[in-house]
Design a protein around this nucleic acid. Structure first.
Lengths: 116, 116
DNA sequence: AGTATACATGCGCAACTATGCAAATATATA
DNA sequence: TATATATTTGCATAGTTGCGCATGTATACT
């Protein structure tokens, strides 16, 4: 659903709104990327203990990483008894990435036309 | 160009290859995101001095940020006389983001089928 | 040659981040 | 109630990052 507004100013605004540092901040750590890959490949929600098995650090660190991913909207958490179930927000994440790709290209095209 | 291999292991491999920390590392800083937005909106290559105008920091910092973006493959640099021209790699960046979105969804779908 | 411009880089400092351990909290089970 | 399990959180430490300033390097101009 690209906007294709054609106006450079509008494109830059649209792009800046999508370029959220928090998302990239969340994904810039190798351990967190392992967690994301593991959560995606599992096809289901994982507990902290299960998630910890993909990366060689203490589970307390994994707990913190998952909390950070949750704050960034990459995962969703639900509590079942004493377990915490973390599930990747696959649809939101994928459409955010695609929307960003579209916004970048729209912006570039608009800028090219304007500077021509 | 989604693979849709259907095999969870293959999907996880494909996903891990695309989940490069370096890219997100490059995009996790607000100043660097401003630079990316500015470069995208300009529709052309910018010098360090031009790029510096979008963010209120010393140009030496901008030079470092642009070098980092270059190492991550987000921008391309060419020297013209004493000027350095930085141009965003818009096509590569957009297709990397879309490929990542596809890989995440493929992986999730494969995992869902496997765990069903 | 001497000066000016554009950019990169070494340095030190302040702020931030990730980590493991230990302790706290919450829930289940005996 | 006592004990075990799952997770979060406080703390200290080690490592990383971003910043401006000063300096260095390359190119252009006079």
């Amino acid at each position: 659903m690209a906007t294709r507004s054609g106006l450079p100013a509008a494109c830059q605004t649209a792009l800046s709104e999508r370029l959220e540092a928090e998302l990239f901040q969340a994904l810039c750590d190798p351990i967190r990327l392992s967690l994301v890959a593991h959560l995606a490949a599992s096809g289901r929600a994982l507990t902290v203990t299960e998630a910890s098995q993909c990366c060689g650090i203490h589970f307390s660190g994994v707990s913190r990483h998952l909390a950070l991913l949750k704050r960034a909207g990459v995962v969703r958490a639900e509590k079942y008894g004493r377990e915490m179930h973390y599930r990747i927000e696959i649809g939101a994440l994928a459409s955010t990435l695609r929307g960003l790709a579209d916004a970048l290209e729209d912006c570039w095209d608009a800028g090219r036309r304007a500077s021509a």
